[in-house]
Amino acid sequence: MLNNLKDYQIILASQSPRRHEMLKDLGLTFEIRTKEIEEIYPEGLTPEQIPVYLAELKAKAFEKELTSKELVITADTIVCVNGWILGKPKDREDAVKMLNALSNQSHQVISGVCLMSNEKKLSFSTTTNVHFKALSDEEIDYYIDNYKPYDKAGAYGIQEWIGFIGIDGIEGSYFNVVGLPIQRLYQELLNF
């Protein structure tokens, strides 16, 4: 369907199995190539700017090696609750703290995506509002012990047990909360 990209070798610069699955389900042929970067952003950025900045930082790591027929896709996702930016939890204690902060609250899941070739770069962000019911300590402990959400922004996966029992409302893209705003990405790839 994305005939405008048939001459491109697409590179997904992500280790996320959820992102791999979504791009595959979109019908794209791609290779996975990642680079280690320090995910640090400057102070003063808005929550919408942070994941875009980080996605662009990930893409910049490929800048000097892209051939004329390669397109790299990078992404980053953060969770924002009451002005607090949540990335991936450092440890169990951090995950407990994050889930307690999300309990009985609405929060925003913001993904930044960067598409970059030798000729151009396009970046965007997508925001989804999510509401959690009040979570008990037992529910939080069960989830962390059984699902080990240390690779997920905000210490949770909407597609896992905690999402099934805890999320009672969502406004916006479900797939954005999973980790990639796939519908928006499709539109941007059509226009790239």
Results as ranks from 00 to 15, higher is better:
Glu63Tyr: 11
Glu65Ala: 07
Glu65Thr: 14
Glu65Gly: 12
Leu66Ile: 06
Leu66Ala: 05
Ser68His: 13
Ser68Pro: 02
Lys69Asn: 14
Leu71Asn: 00
Val72Arg: 00
Ile73Gln: 01
Ile73Val: 06
Thr74Asp: 08
Ala75Lys: 03
Ile78His: 01
Cys80Ser: 12
Asn82His: 10
Ile85Val: 14
Leu86Trp: 03
Leu86Glu: 02
Gly87Gln: 12
Gly87Pro: 05
Gly87Asn: 09
Gly87Met: 09
Lys88Leu: 03
Lys88Cys: 04
Lys90Val: 14
Lys90Gln: 15
Asp91Phe: 09
Arg92Trp: 09
Glu93Ile: 09
Glu93Lys: 15
Asp94Thr: 05
Ala95Met: 01
Val96Tyr: 11
Lys97His: 14
Lys97Ala: 14
Leu99Phe: 05
Leu99Tyr: 03
Asn100Pro: 07
Asn100Glu: 15
Ala101Gln: 12
Leu102Asn: 06
Ser103Ala: 05
Asn104Cys: 08
Asn104Arg: 08
Asn104Lys: 12
Asn104Tyr: 10
Ser106Arg: 13
Ser106Thr: 15
Gln108Asp: 13
Ile110Glu: 01
Ile110Phe: 09
Gly112Glu: 04
Cys114Ile: 10
Asn118Met: 12
Lys120His: 06
Lys120Ser: 02
Lys121Asp: 02
Leu122Trp: 04
Leu122Gln: 08
Ser123Ala: 11
Ser123Pro: 06
Ser123Val: 00
Ser123Cys: 09
Phe124Tyr: 13
Thr126Gln: 13
Thr127Asp: 01
Thr127Lys: 11
Asn129Ala: 12
His131Phe: 07
Asp137Ser: 15
Glu138Lys: 15
Glu138Cys: 12
Glu138Tyr: 07
Ile140Thr: 08
Ile140Phe: 09
Asp141Gln: 13
Asp141His: 09
Tyr143Gly: 02
Asp145Trp: 06
Asp145Ala: 15
Asn146Val: 04
Tyr147Phe: 15
Lys148Asp: 10
Tyr150Trp: 04
Asp151Arg: 07
Asp151Met: 11
Ala153Tyr: 00
Gly154His: 04
Gly154Asp: 02
Tyr156Phe: 12
Gln159His: 11
Glu160Arg: 11
Glu160Tyr: 02
Ile162Val: 13
Ile162Tyr: 00
Ile162Cys: 01
Ile162Leu: 15
Asp168Ser: 07
Asp168Val: 06
Gly169Ser: 14
Gly169His: 12
Gly172Leu: 00
Ser173Cys: 14
Phe175Asp: 11
Asn176Trp: 08
